[in-house]
Design a protein around this nucleic acid. Structure first.
Ligand SMILES: [Mn+2]
Ligand SMILES: [Mn+2]
Ligand SMILES: [Zn+2]
Ligand SMILES: [Zn+2]
Lengths: 139, 139
DNA sequence: ATTCGGATTAGACAAAGTCAAAATTATAAA
DNA sequence: TTTATAATTTTGACTTTGTCTAATCCGAAT
């Protein structure tokens, strides 16, 4: 079901579909996020986007990532104290997090059940549930 | 079971029990963490410790919190992109996180069951499992 | 008193991210 | 086409959180 998004035109359509004006910079940033999906930091995206020619400034990368998060195109992962990771996989899923290397690995949500959570504080609604399995190598 | 730690002497004993030399600064920082437990940032601890008289420098607060984490006296919570929170409750438990206010609320681990997690990547061991229920106020 | 290791400190520094104002680009009117 | 207007991007200064190093301080133990 997960059609590849790896051309500038498919990214542009995705943007239009979310009501985002598909500018050159936004398309390049979207492409960096979706052409080979992974968990990348803003700085990595910045470097990736500007690898060949300079395409977008730091401010634009940060602004655009924030916009993409707002519009539900990517998901923020708060797991490393030093930087935010952006997950181009927006389907519900969880993560292994190697606390030494910083590597993130997806855990599909299918099959994962969480039981016995208490009811929410009154008046509040759930934004989402993050499960992070912190792992490390060795004994 | 949860004996209050709220005197300088009880903090000193806790430090000795963990093989930490109980210096004046460490005792003050420990007291700030344990006398009324909550989820506080390094900056809040720094302010709290130096509220009456100046007791410890920024470097010492950061060094000491890191030491306390190493020795298992407090737990780091990575949940806010801007700062680390230190949890003086080291028993296994989870958290509600209000994404608007930044407020953290404990979820006792009793009764919470997590099912169907895949097996770990080969060669790795679990450091811990964090469940963060992101909430917000209103519809 | 001197020594020595551990602990603390000041302050410079680094990394991640934000912000405001200027400059650029796109869109629409005239 | 010119002109006006709105949207977007850029620059570079700035903030926040945290780290690092070298100097100092402290507390035993000689
Ligand atoms: Mn940081
Ligand atoms: Mn930050
Ligand atoms: Zn993921
Ligand atoms: Zn807690």
């Amino acid at each position: 079901m997960d059609l590849r998004i790896h051309t500038r035109e498919s990214v542009a359509q995705m943007l239009r579909g979310r009501g985002i004006n598909p500018t050159h910079q936004r398309i390049e940033i979207g492409l960096a996020l979706f052409e080979n999906p992974r968990h990348s930091s803003a700085d990595e995206i910045l470097a990736l986007v500007n690898a060949r020619h300079t395409e977008a400034s730091k401010a634009t990368v940060y602004n655009t990532l924030k916009l993409f998060v707002e519009k539900g195109m990517v998901r923020e992962l708060i797991v490393d104290p030093n930087k935010v990771f952006y997950d181009s996989n927006t389907s519900v899923h969880h993560h292994f997090y190697d606390v030494i290397t910083g590597e993130l690995t997806d855990i599909p949500a299918e099959g994962v059940h969480i039981d016995g959570l208490p009811s929410l504080p009154p008046g509040s609604i759930t934004e989402g549930i993050d499960v992070i399995v912190r792992i490390r190598q060795g004994h």
